[in-house]
Each structure stands twice: as structure tokens, then as C-alpha cells.
């Protein structure tokens, strides 16, 4: 589609994944994502979207084909190197996965802390990302004191805090109402404009129409469509 010199961030080529059962969750999936791209992955439940995320984070290895993420060949990634891959990623989930006993600030700081960052550096960076997600005034709130949308913003701040080049969100709006969903995608879109590559899984066709980005459509484990939408929901070319 485009021919330029941007780095390839995600490369799936002929990827199949069969778990233990022998039945393929996805098969023959090929696509690439370049630095600075924004990509939606959509499809019915069980289509294999989360399986694609697990392949990207090195949680599972492809049964067939080849997966390369940020230059890491997932097929050949040794268990000891998986953490290295993950440090280049920021992952966001539908259920937020915040630690309930920690405040918003502590939740975000935790991601830096476990990688050994110093307190001063942590304070500076956490304050910056909390500002970015618009929660500067909720730093000291516990997850139970935050709305779903706010919790997801904290999760996004945590995904961003170690400055990864690729943000992956698995149905980040699944638990949110339409307005909150819109705001979350808008935030991810803003983060994309600041330079990060962003991949978002969603069920929500309304969001696809409103944001008009590149969409990969999965159906029963196969990639059946990969195109850029025009505002209003029509396909570009």
C-alpha cells in the first residue's frame, strides 16, 4: 500500500496457531504494521484476535509461519528473552488489570519500578503520563474510586510509562459505555500521533466508522479483510 522507509514493527507471515487441541485458532494470517501506524483488529468472538495478541507478546509461539515484533523473532525467542520483547510493548486489557491495593500513581509507577528505575525518574515520568491521559488530579485515587473509563486511562498510562514503541490493546473499550469508549480510542489516537504504533482490538463497528483507520477483519481464524476506512465508514480505495 505504501512504499517508504519506515521500520516494520509487526510482521505476521502465514501464521497459524493450534494450541493443544490441534484445531487452528488462526491460520494463514499475514500482515505487517509499520512504525507510527494505527491498526484496528476486529471480528466475531472466537475469531482469533486475542490469539494474535498472545503471539505478539511472546506468550505463545506460532505453530506455523513466522511472527516478528520490534525486530524480535517470536518463533525463536528464548524464554529468557521474552522480557526483553515485552519491554518494547505496552499492553492494555479489557479488564484493566490494576492492582486494587495501589493508587493510580502507584499502579503506573509499579511498571517502572519492576524494571529497576530510580525514584526520581519514576516520579517525573509518572507525572508526565498521568497528565497525558488526563488523570493528573486522580493520582492518589484507588482503582475502586475510579470510573471504568478512568481505570482504563490508568492502565494506558501504565502501558506508556516505560516508553514502548508499540501499544497493544485487547478490547480496551469492552467494559465501557459509548462515550467513554470514544474517549479511550481518542486517547490512543493521540498517543499514536505522538509517535507510538498502536494496535487496538475491538468489537465496536461504530468506533471503526468514527475513527476511520486501517482495519483488519478476522473471521473464524482467517484474515478476510485488511483496508483503510474513510471517515463515514466507507473504504478508502
Amino acid at each position: 500500500m505504501t512504499t517508504n522507509n519506515r521500520k516494520t514493527v509487526i510482521e505476521f507471515s502465514g501464521v497459524g496457531e493450534s494450541y493443544q487441541s490441534g484445531e487452528f485458532a488462526i491460520r494463514g494470517v499475514s500482515f505487517t504494521v509499520e512504525e507510527g501506524d494505527f491498526l484496528f483488529i476486529c471480528g466475531e468472538s472466537g475469531a482469533g484476535k486475542s490469539t494474535m495478541i498472545k503471539l505478539m507478546t511472546g506468550e505463545i509461539k506460532p505453530t506455523e509461519g513466522r511472527v516478528t515484533i520490534n525486530g524480535y523473532n517470536v518463533n525463536k525467542l528464548k524464554p529468557g528473552k521474552v522480557p526483553h520483547l515485552r519491554r518494547t510493548l505496552g499492553v492494555v486489557f479489557q479488564d484493566f488489570r490494576l492492582i486494587k491495593k495501589k493508587t493510580a500513581e502507584e499502579n503506573v509507577a509499579f511498571a517502572m519500578r519492576v524494571l529497576g528505575a530510580g525514584p526520581v525518574q519514576i516520579r517525573r515520568r509518572v507525572s508526565y503520563v498521568m497528565e497525558l491521559v488526563g488523570l493528573k488530579d486522580k493520582m492518589c485515587s484507588y482503582p475502586t474510586e475510579l470510573s471504568g473509563g478512568e481505570q482504563q486511562r490508568v492502565a494506558i498510562a501504565r502501558a506508556l510509562v516505560n516508553n514502548p514503541s508499540l501499544i497493544i490493546a485487547d478490547e480496551p473499550t469492552g467494559n465501557l459505555d459509548p462515550q467513554r469508549s470514544y474517549e479511550i480510542i481518542e486517547l490512543l489516537s493521540k498517543i499514536n500521533q505522538l509517535g507510538s504504533t498502536v494496535v487496538v482490538i475491538t468489537h465496536d463497528y461504530e468506533l471503526l466508522r468514527r475513527f476511520a483507520k486501517r482495519v483488519i477483519y478476522m473471521n473464524q481464524g482467517s484474515l478476510v479483510m485488511d483496508k483503510v476506512l474513510r471517515p463515514g465508514g466507507e473504504e478508502a480505495q
Binding site: G80, P83, R97, I99
Partner: peptide, 9 residues
């Protein structure tokens, strides 16, 4: 979460 953000074992 530690594993997700890339903390080593």
C-alpha cells in the same frame, strides 16, 4: 503485571 511489563523471572 510484572511479567507483562517485562520483568525478568
Amino acid at each position: 503485571i510484572m511479567r507483562m511489563v517485562g520483568a525478568t523471572k
